[in-house]
């Protein structure tokens, strides 16, 4: 860990002012990912701006029937918040599928959005990695890539986004509120995380001098028909090989709205409008779900060790849609997948 300065921001304006003054500074809230990376010398900030005392810890109802979640609401407070549990159980379930109880107590909503990849090479400064050191090369493409992406990859990077919470937020069409020197703005969730292309060092479209202040959920919560299905190498406390957030709105026997987002398969939570369109106006059935999975994975590309993920993702999509349609979401403590 390198030597760094430590300061506390007093309010959002102060935080923005402080980050603008030092391009090598970074914000710290829960610290659960940042401190980890600093100990590996992967993150080397000159200054940490402690934002944990900012007033961004409330969950409030919005005028249009949605919720505005302060960026500093902890993952566990969010997962167990009565409004989230009642109206957005998909989000609660996804949060509880990730990390451990201790980490969820520490991790913030804003920080979760900014989690960095678990790619082995990103974490090991002894190996080349374009995300950590642009231009050094991608070691994963010809190396150990069982955990790596099958969608939206580039020749520069095949890393995956590691968050579970973000997969649900993507499915729910959340919006990210940010503040910066130019004022506040909102970013659609699908525009928040980036694909690697030839700038894998940038995970998101948040500007370096901006701070996430809130995440807003629209009114539609899919509380009746949803699931978060996470497939991993042990039954808890592991990053996803593939995870699926599925949310349906049914009218009688017809799907009138469908959301499908995948984790563990791309550099961002992956959504596919065409696949969702293939579900709309259809009756829930194995055939429909198969078709949607086919569409979803039509451009999937494997790199050797991760070839199994294409098939696994297909089956997980279908199973998740079955669970969502039946109104029998996956339990995060009963490990049997129903």
């Amino acid at each position: 860990m390198i030597n760094f300065q430590y300061v506390r921001a007093t309010d959002v304006a102060d935080a923005v002012h402080r980050i603008a003054a030092d391009p090598a500074a970074t914000f710290i809230a829960g610290g659960s990912n940042l401190i980890d990376l600093m100990k590996y010398d992967v993150e080397r900030p000159s200054r940490l701006i402690d934002i944990t005392r900012l007033p961004l810890k409330s969950v409030e109802e919005t005028a249009d029937g949605g919720l505005r979640i302060g960026a500093l609401v902890s993952n566990s407070d969010l997962a167990y918040h009565p409004l989230i549990a009642a109206r957005y159980p998909l989000l609660a379930s996804a949060i509880l599928a990730g990390a451990s109880a201790q980490l969820r107590n520490m991790a913030s909503t804003g920080g979760n959005l900014l989690q960095r990849t678990r790619c082995y090479y990103f974490y090991d400064t002894a190996t080349p990695c374009n995300k950590r050191e642009p231009g050094s090369g991608c070691s994963a493409i010809s190396g150990l890539n069982r955990m790596h992406a099958i969608l939206g990859t580039s020749e520069a990077c095949i890393a995956t986004h590691p968050s579970d919470m973000c997969v649900a937020l993507a499915a729910l069409d959340a919006r990210v509120h940010a503040a910066g020197p130019a004022g506040a703005r909102t970013i659609a969730f699908s525009d928040f995380h980036r694909l690697p292309e030839n700038t894998p060092e940038r995970d998101t479209n948040l500007q370096p001098n901006e701070i996430v202040t809130a995440v807003e959920l629209p009114a539609r919560g899919f509380a009746a028909n949803y699931t978060y299905l996470k497939i991993r190498d042990r039954l808890s406390y592991a990053f996803a090989l593939v995870s699926v957030a599925a949310a349906l709105e049914l009218q009688g026997d017809t799907i009138i709205e469908a959301r499908l987002a995948l984790g563990g398969v791309a550099h961002k939570p992956w959504r596919d409008p065409t696949a969702e369109a293939a579900l709309r106006e259809q009756a829930p059935s194995q055939a429909t779900f198969n078709r949607a999975a086919d569409v979803f994975l039509r451009d999937a590309k494997a790199f050797g060790h991760n070839a199994f993920k294409i098939n696994l993702a297909h089956r997980a999509i279908v199973r998740a849609l079955i669970q969502a349609a039946a109104g029998t979401p996956q339990s995060q403590s009963d490990k049997k997948i129903r």
């Binding site: 430590y6 710290i28 610290g31 401190i35 980890d36 109880a101 201790q102 980490l103 107590n105």
Partner: peptide, 27 residues
Amino acid sequence: CDHGQCGACTVLVEGRRILSCLSLAVM
């Protein structure tokens, strides 16, 4: 592990369990 992977460093801060290895004391 010193990296938030094992839980051996769990303590209670304000009554909530957290990982002390990923917490800066000054914070």
